[in-house]
């Protein structure tokens, strides 16, 4: 299915959020949002993906 991952359109066979972030090579630490909604890490496994979903994977950076 087509997933927009961190702003990039991609094809993915992952059917849940946990599988997707693993497939995309996510490195700790990170947090995930699906269609603009925060998804706790504990719920990623049970959060199913649909065609057209948008996923954001964020990690720490410098901030002011």
């Amino acid at each position: 299915m087509k997933i927009t991952f961190n702003g990039q359109l991609t094809d993915s066979a992952a059917d849940n959020l946990q599988s997707l972030v693993i497939a995309m090579g996510a490195k700790e630490p990170f947090a995930v949002a699906l269609n603009g909604q925060f998804i706790p890490r504990s719920q990623c496994q049970t959060t199913l993906l649909s065609d057209g979903d948008s996923v954001e994977l964020l990690s720490p950076i410098q901030g002011g």
Binding site: N6, K27, L58, Q62, G63
Partner: peptide, 10 residues
Amino acid sequence: TVSLRRQSSV
């Protein structure tokens, strides 16, 4: 202070 951004973007 710190922040979050897309992984691998910076």
